[in-house]
Design a binder for these strands. Structure first.
Lengths: 185, 185, 185, 185
DNA sequence: TATGAATGAGATTTCATTCAT
DNA sequence: AATGAATGAAATCTCATTCAT
């Protein structure tokens, strides 16, 4: 019964969920008040793991060491994303300003972005982009690219995905100043 | 009937659609074979506009002029995104490798990314990231950040959105080489 | 569709209701939000008719004329009771102090009893029973005896039922004084 | 298990029953073949007690002594009713001519009414109402008024209830002749 | 062309009953 | 004897689609 609630699809029929979990309808409703309830249970799991993960992001430093640290952190994010993909995709399908689900997901991502923003602000002394906005943009990219890869919308393998995300993030942090300047000149 | 087909939600019930469109169920089925059919109609509209839009992306050049050109192009994308958000988000709900809809959407984004990739490749002479992958990452970011802003998941206004996207893209193209180097050293 | 909502059984399955009404499940839910909703619709119908009926109870007078008037009024009550039997029985099955349904039914009967009480009080000048309590007792008897007859718990025909109810009521009203006395001596 | 079988509701879920009884589902099915079986067990208890109670109704005599005897007998009935209310009400939910349960309940009430009828016939020498029918009417009133009081549908206390029932019954028995006459004149 | 009441297949949910411990 | 998690048949409810007007 424990493994089972790792698997639900929001879009899926209870019938499917139950089939995958090799249980019965009755058992499903023994553990969850309704389909929505399962979804919230999963949501709170993701939220917890995401919060833990964002807490584990240390200072972003230049050079190979910083690059590798960032890459391994992103690796963990992608892992988590893949594991919870159905749930994350579900909150994504909902309008953030109109549904509880959407609002919840938006909150999780916002906390995630804030942590990244703090790290960017620490590292980047130059008068670059607003770190808050840049962090959100990065989270958007990380989330969406993970999604493209997961759904095979694009033909990118896991290594390419991580290299690209890491490079853009790492350079984004340390090239912020120059970036802004290049744009302004 | 004209306003109406700008509004469909994949998730929405036919009941909702006809209410918004101020028509009847009967009329709906007069114009569309079924709900899916409406979706395809909308999809082909987006596809067309997206293709036109990607065609309009000229060479990316350094300096203020290049920045402004890129910004105004992104502005058009955001417009298009906002207009077709429900449809774009809907093709997303489907697995790209398992549904026609998903595959179609993936195709639209892929063509879009390829154009951007070409422009990046033209501009960027250095041994940076794979332009194809970088372009996809950029499209992911553009698409998803537009979504965040549209759904008010985050508090970013339109100008901030465009400034951020443009800056990251513009510097991404011209700092690619240095970026890669900073990561590798 | 109008006749149809005259027929529902609270205890019945939607399947049965729909079969009796020769409609489909879909149609049922087009007219009623859920099974409960149908029940409330019927309930408000009974309430209305019962209120109208109690309003039509004129002064209770002695002699054959009074007897006949009372009998014909009781006849109408029994009619109404039979027509709405499933609904009335349903509110009966619920605890009056624990369910909305039960409370509603209790209210309808209470209004009914009050009217009867007023008529008893008008007619009965002697120091008999409390007219309010006596009226409630009479309503209890009328309601329950109708029920016994309806469900064939007892072998009483319609005429016997009406004769008995009318006689007990009529004598109850005019023998109140003597009754109390016979009990007290 | 002792308290428990005093409490079953026919409408109640087995879940509720075992919760109230502080047992488990397993134990329930150890003692009863199924939910219906519990009901029959309770039913036979009521039946027994009701039969004993009707047997204890002595001759109905005029005057205070007869009144008090009748009142104390009714007191015992109300006691019994309150103790078994859920069961008594439950046999009521079934159509007497269509279900075993309903038929059984009808039988219990019929025996009860016959005893009362016999006592009425003994006492009442006049050419009043059919004692059988009158007895049934009285049982109906007793049963239903007990119910109203039990569920607090009406604001009547136990003493008022007993006074009213006793008075109506006692006068009914001894005013039968006059009653019929007053109606006929 | 346009309508919207009606439909029914298929989804979700309930609850009496079983059975391994 | 006692337990309560698990079951699944049967109930309730939803919604894309049809069709008489």
């Amino acid at each position: 019964m424990v493994v089972f609630d790792r698997r639900g699809y929001h879009a899926a029929r209870v019938d499917d969920i139950v089939k995958v979990a090799k249980t019965s309808h009755g058992t499903f409703y023994l553990y969850f008040a309704n389909k929505e309830d399962l979804f919230w249970a999963l949501l709170s799991d993701v939220s917890e793991e995401m919060t833990a993960l964002s807490g584990s992001l240390g200072p972003i430093v230049p050079g190979r060491k910083g690059y590798e640290e960032l890459r391994s952190w992103l690796d963990k994010f992608v892992d988590l994303y893949i594991r919870y993909a159905p749930v994350i995709r579900a909150w994504t399908e909902a309008e953030a300003d109109a549904s509880e689900t959407g609002a919840f997901g938006a909150g999780v991502l916002a906390r995630f972005a804030r942590r990244l923003s703090d790290r960017i602000a620490e590292a980047d002394s130059g008068p670059g982009l607003d770190p808050d906005v840049a962090a959100v943009a990065m989270v958007a990219m990380i989330e969406r690219l993970s999604y493209y890869v997961l759904t095979r919308s694009v033909e990118i393998d896991r290594d390419q995905l991580l290299d690209t995300l890491t490079a853009i993030l790492h350079v984004g942090v340390f090239a912020g100043t120059r970036a802004r300047r290049s744009a302004a000149v």
